[in-house]
Amino acid sequence: MKRREFIQKTAAGSALVLGGLSLSSFAEPETKKITILHTNDVHSHIDPFPIDDPKFPNMGGAARRASLIEQVRREEPNVLLLDAGDVFQGTPYFNYYGGELEFKLMSMMQYDLATMGNHDFDNGIDGFKLQLPHAKFDFVCANYNFKNTVLDGIVKPYKIFYKDGLKIGIFGLGIELNGLVNKNLYKETVYNDPIGTAQDMARTLRHTEKCDLVICLSHLGFIYANEPNKVSDLVLARATKDIDLIIGGHTHTFLTKPYIEKNSAGEEVIINQVGCYGINVGRIDFTFEKGKKSKMGSKTISV
């Protein structure tokens, strides 16, 4: 805690100094760093898997995840902790408490933002809303129109965060619910085209809001091998621009490392998804430099 305050004071101090010397050409370029931590499809997995589990022996667990997050927060001043949906369903914790414990633990871990997965409708849109008082973080989803539902005005399209003077815009995208979730659960939620919505969102965040970083929190799925044209994070990345990072979910894809794809303007977009059940946490660090506008290829991406 003291370290974090110190860093923030130092940052303010250096800004003051730089402000005074802004015309001097010998000023060193100032750098800032934003650390994104993310999970997806945790599916109510609060306890670690048993030691004799055939697939994930002794992996995962909320208490360990909290320690990992705490460790990163101790080392990095500007952390954003995000979840790409399907917080609910998968263990008796959900059957017994309807998602209350999941939201409470995520709040204790200080999650900043999440998007909605299809399973987050499993107790109905009303069941989801019922648990929201336990979540000290917001949900965003830009392509679900909640106008005629209980989530109207509660789940917003995007949210903007300020970290160390940088502006970070994050919007959410949800998967088509028809065929995946019973209509009597999602009710009057209207699904809109994710690509068109994403392009509008990215333009707004990048050019109107002038965000330094634009992140899409998606529950569309990484890719559908049998239906390559079906909307997915890869299709989304190729078809849009002004998005820096897509954090995905739904397909439970264990990417060995973040995937780099070219967007419609030929710029690089990073896509990441870290499997499911709280087995992994993804981490993406963005280093910003003052005045160094990145030209194509001048960005160094190491994954």
């Binding site: 100032e30 320690s67 490392k257 990073i270 990441n272 087995i279 946490v281 981490r283 910003f288 190491s302």
Partner: peptide, 25 residues
């Protein structure tokens, strides 16, 4: 002048038993 992302680093952090349990959780 504005800030621009110049370097990006990504990795996967597996949640194994090497992380101790957070007591509050």
């Amino acid at each position: 002048p504005a800030f621009y992302a110049t370097a990006i680093e990504g990795k996967k952090l597996p949640i194994s038993a090497e992380y101790s349990n957070n007591h509050a959780i």
